[in-house]
Design a protein around this nucleic acid. Sequence first.
DNA 1: AAACATACGGAACACGGTTCCGTTTTCCAA
DNA 2: TTGGAAAACGGAACCGTGTTCCGTATGTTT
Lengths: 191, 191
Amino acid sequence: MTDTQSGAPRKQRADSRRNETALLEAAAAAFVASGVNAPVRDIAARAGVGVGTIYRHFPTRADLIVAVYRHQVEACAEAGPALLTTSATPHAALASWIHLFVDFLVTKHGLAEAMRSDDAAFQTLHAYFLDRLVPVCAELLDAASTAGEIIPDMDALVLMHGIGNLCIGADSPDYDARLMVGLVIAGLRRR
Amino acid sequence: MTDTQSGAPRKQRADSRRNETALLEAAAAAFVASGVNAPVRDIAARAGVGVGTIYRHFPTRADLIVAVYRHQVEACAEAGPALLTTSATPHAALASWIHLFVDFLVTKHGLAEAMRSDDAAFQTLHAYFLDRLVPVCAELLDAASTAGEIIPDMDALVLMHGIGNLCIGADSPDYDARLMVGLVIAGLRRR
DNA sequence: AAACATACGGAACACGGTTCCGTTTTCCAA
DNA sequence: TTGGAAAACGGAACCGTGTTCCGTATGTTT
């Protein structure tokens, strides 16, 4: 049954659009100040709206996080192929790209933690990040392994998971996520 | 028979000791069933005590976790020197020991996550695990680097942090903590 | 301007950790 | 054996967060 509802019954209300952008800005600010787990009420207060409005626009926290960081993720994804053409070797491109990803993660307090929460609400976050970045990573891995620089058959999804995990707690003074990621990259090398 | 004791103010009450062991058993069971973040009320109910009793015996969740897993951590710590004498090379000993640690972590749902929480309540957990295991790891690292098998100056604390992080979410079907840890171990190798 | 869909606000609820205090149990000493 | 102080207990009450719900307000269309 094709219930062809009338094409575009009505456009989105102006206040709704205003609130959405206000929320995005408020959330970005709150994330910087308190990490991606900033209390819902705080974000609402910053945006000058009620909590209900948040849930109406972004049903889960993951939706909000995705919306806030979407363009940065896009930039990271697009950097992959670019690096492949500008780098000396595929392995160098892979290394640079991973460092780019790490830089992104470690500057978002709590993002790495959230990324790997098995809470159902974070499915969206998981899905978006992985859908967007895993193929890029896979392409880089493939190029490097074709060039014989790294071990074959490394799974991009597992690698991304692992890199993400290594970035957890990156702001702790006695931890060094980049060093650990460097070990992983070295470990990928064919010996 | 009167028990042999010097003039202590008073010995611990019998019900108190009973409750403590009951609590330990209940917590162990709850941890297996629901992970180390099992609700306090659940643990209390399993042990047949009130929630206040938990807090009296184990002021923070970390205290409870430490108490439950203490002997396993001890075993892991003691395995370090042993492996060093029985293994072919220091690097092999290091690898075996790390895998031992990983096995311990991945079978305790949520432990790895808890390990790296920056919540103040988990200071105890952090402190105990690291105080006990980092020196062992350092000894193994030192032996391997003295033998020229791995890169020098690797910090044991950072390595333990990283390994712990890699174990987060180890029960997810599309992740492989052991594989990632293997990459790190390979990355340690001098090339 | 009236009518109606859309969106809003925030009170109310759910849930888990933590505290507090009146009551109960244990132990010691007389 | 027993009186009573100290130790320990239980769980109600409290707090902070996420989430839902519905009466009200706002924007849009005719």
